[in-house]
Design a protein around this nucleic acid. Structure first.
Lengths: 329, 329
DNA sequence: CCAGAAACTTTGAACGATCTAATCCTGCCG
DNA sequence: CGGCAGGATTAGATCGTTCAAAGTTTCTGG
C-alpha cells in the first residue's frame, strides 16, 4: 500500500487547490463543470476517501446515529428490534450515516451515556425505542437541542418531537374484522393492564371494531405479558358460560399461551397474535405484522431531514400494519 | 451551556500544560502523583471528555469496532445474533470501545464496505459472524493487516486468525447423553447436508456419543433448514420398521418440525433442538443453548488484546454450550 | 477596450488532540 | 560548588479537513 491519500494528494493530481476538491465534495454547484469532472476523476483514480475524523473536527458533525440495543427481555420480542436495527442500518447507510450501538441499564444510565456519546463522539442524532409516559430521556435530549426520533409515539404530547409509529389500533382492528368476516361473533381480547400506550391502543382497535359491528365488548382480560399468563387468561375465558369462539391478543406471547389453552380444550377457537415474531411463523399463528423496515426507513428520513436542514412537512409518521394469515384464524 | 471544554481548558484550570493533561489520560505513570490529582480534579469539575475525532486524527485509531448485522433470514435464528450483539456492545463499552453496524448483500459488497469503513472512519477492528469454507472476507482483512475476530471457527486453517466458537459437537453430545440417561436407545439425528462446518460438527457429537455407548448410528437424515423440512424428515424416520424413540436436531427449526410430526403420530418421542431460540422457550422444547454473552465478551477480549498490544496467549476460544431441559426431553 | 461584476480558485488559519524535542527542576556526586 | 543524570513539564509542530477572506480569471455591456 502506498502513502495515505489525502485531499492534498487529490488536489495535486487534479491540479487544483485543496479547497476546490473540498467544494467538489460538499458544494458541487459552485465548481465549474470541467474542473469538477477532473477532480472526480482524480478521486476515483486515487481511491480517495474523505477522512471522517478530520471532517468531524472541523464541522462538529460525525454522521453517526446512535441506537440503543436492549437486552432481550422475554426473548420473544427480540427479533422485532433485530429487524428494526437491520432496516435502520441499511437506510442510514444509503443516506451516508452510520449506526452506533449503546446499552444502558436504566434511564439515568442512558442519559449519562448520551452525555458521553455527545461529548466524545459528537453524535449527530439518537433513535429511541420503547418510549414511556413522561419519558425523562426525550426531555433531556430536547432540552439540549439534540436531534432525535422515537420509534413509538410520545404518550404525553404527540407534537413534542418527531416520531414514527405503527398504528396498533388498526392492527387489532384488522384482526377483529378478519374474525368477523369468517363468521365469529364472540370475539375476546387478551391484553396488558391499562396504562401502557401501546397496549391500550391495541385494545381500542378491537373494542371499536366490535362496537361498530354492534357486538358485545365485555370479553376481555388484562395480564402481564407472557405465555403462561396468556394461557391462564384464555382458560379463564373458556370457562365462561358463553365462551368466546375467537380471541385477539396483544402479543404473540399471549397468543401462544392462548393457543395452548384452546389446543387441549377447544380446538376450534381462532387465535390472532401481534408482532409476527418467528414464533408465530413457526407455530402457524396468524399475527399482525409491523412494517419494521419501513418504520426504520422513515426514522432515518426524519433525522436526515432535521440534520440537513430541509424541514420536514410532517415529522410524525403513522404506519399501517398488515395481518399475516396462517392457520389459527 | 458554556463554551466547549477542551484539553486547554483543563490545562489552564489545573495550571499545567496541555501535554501534562494528555499524559494524565494516556500515560498516568509518568506524571507526579500530586499533579495527576490536580488534573483529575479539574477534569471532573469541568466535565471534560476527550474529543474522539481529534484523538483519532492524531493517533489513527478510532476505538470503533464494526459488526455486520445480517438480514433476518429464517427469522428463527435472528435472536441469536441479537443476543450476541447486545453482549458485544456491553463488553466493548466496558473496554472503551464502541460498536458500529454495517450491512452488505454479498461478500464483494462486504469487502467494499470494509474499504469504505477503514478509509473514512479508521475502524480499529471487525467482528465477523457466519464464516464459510474459503471465506474471501477473512483473507482480505488478513492481507491488509486489519485486526479481526470471527465468531465461528475458520474451517480451513484453525490457526489462521483469532476466533471464538461454541463447541457444537459437545452440545449435541450433551443432548444425546441426556437421552441415553433417560432410557432411550434408538436416538435419531436430523441435520443439514454435509459440508457446512457447523452442521457436520453437530452431527459428530451425536454420532460419537452413540458409538461410545455401543449403539447404532444409522438413524439420521440430512435436509435444508426449516420447519417443513424437519417435519418431513421426522415423518420419514417414524415410518421405519423400527422408528426412533428420540431425536436430536441441528436447529430449533428442524426440531419444531420434528415436534409437529411426532405430535400427531407418536407423542412419546423425545425431541431436542439447538440454539435455545425464543421459539424453543415458547413451545417448551429442550434445546442446546449457546453462551452468547460469554462468546461476545471473549471476542472483545481477543480484539482489545491485539489492539492494545498485549499479546494473547491463546487467540482461539472454544466455549461449552449448555442443555436447557424443558418438557420435550 | 476597460470597468465592474460574477464566477471560480487559492491561501492561511482554525478544530482538539498527540508526538517530538527542548527546557526546567531537583537531588546527588565528585 | 559545579556538573550532571533523570524525571517532570512545556512549547511547537502536526494530523486532514473546512471556513473565511483574499486573489484571479472570465464574462458582460457601455
Amino acid at each position: 500500500m502506498s502513502e495515505k491519500v489525502t485531499i492534498a494528494t487529490v488536489a495535486r493530481h487534479a491540479r487544483v487547490s485543496r479547497q476546490t476538491v473540498s467544494n467538489v465534495l460538499n458544494a458541487p454547484h459552485i465548481v465549474r463543470e470541467e474542473t469538477r469532472q477532473r477532480v472526480q476523476e482524480a478521486i476515483a483514480v486515487l481511491g480517495y476517501r474523505a477522512n471522517q475524523a478530520a471532517r468531524q473536527m472541523r464541522t462538529g458533525r460525525s454522521r453517526l446515529i446512535a441506537v440503543r440495543i436492549e437486552p432481550t427481555r422475554d426473548g420473544i420480542n427480540g427479533s422485532v428490534l433485530d429487524r428494526f436495527l437491520h432496516g435502520l442500518t441499511e437506510t442510514a447507510d444509503a443516506a451516508g450515516y452510520r449506526v452506533m450501538l449503546y446499552t444502558a441499564g436504566d434511564d439515568d444510565q442512558e442519559i449519562a451515556t448520551y452525555d458521553d456519546l455527545l461529548g466524545a463522539y459528537d453524535l449527530d442524532a439518537f433513535v429511541l425505542t420503547g418510549t414511556k409516559h413522561g419519558d425523562p430521556r426525550t426531555a433531556w435530549l430536547a432540552d439540549r437541542g439534540v436531534p432525535f426520533v422515537t420509534f413509538g409515539r410520545p404518550w404525553d404530547d404527540p407534537e413534542s418531537h418527531p416520531w414514527v409509529d405503527v398504528d396498533n389500533a388498526d392492527g387489532t382492528a384488522q384482526a377483529t374484522r378478519r374474525l368477523l368476516d369468517t363468521g365469529h361473533r364472540r370475539i375476546a381480547f387478551i391484553g396488558w393492564p391499562e396504562g401502557s400506550g401501546v397496549g391500550d391502543d391495541r385494545r381500542t382497535g378491537w373494542r371499536t371494531t366490535l362496537a361498530a359491528a354492534g357486538l358485545d365488548t365485555d370479553l376481555h382480560r388484562a395480564t402481564w405479558d407472557g405465555i403462561a399468563e396468556g394461557e391462564r387468561a384464555m382458560r379463564d375465558l373458556l370457562h365462561l358460560a358463553e365462551p368466546p369462539t375467537a380471541v385477539v391478543c396483544a402479543s404473540d406471547s399471549l397468543a401462544l399461551g392462548a393457543l395452548q389453552a384452546v389446543g387441549t380444550a377447544a380446538p376450534q377457537v381462532a387465535v390472532v397474535g401481534f408482532d409476527d415474531t418467528p414464533v408465530a411463523a413457526a407455530v402457524g399463528l396468524t399475527s399482525v405484522s409491523q412494517p419494521l423496515a419501513a418504520a426504520a426507513a422513515r426514522c432515518v428520513e426524519l433525522l436526515t431531514g432535521v440534520l440537513d436542514g430541509t424541514h420536514q412537512t410532517d415529522p410524525h409518521v403513522l404506519l399501517q400494519p398488515a395481518l399475516v394469515l396462517r392457520h389459527t384464524a
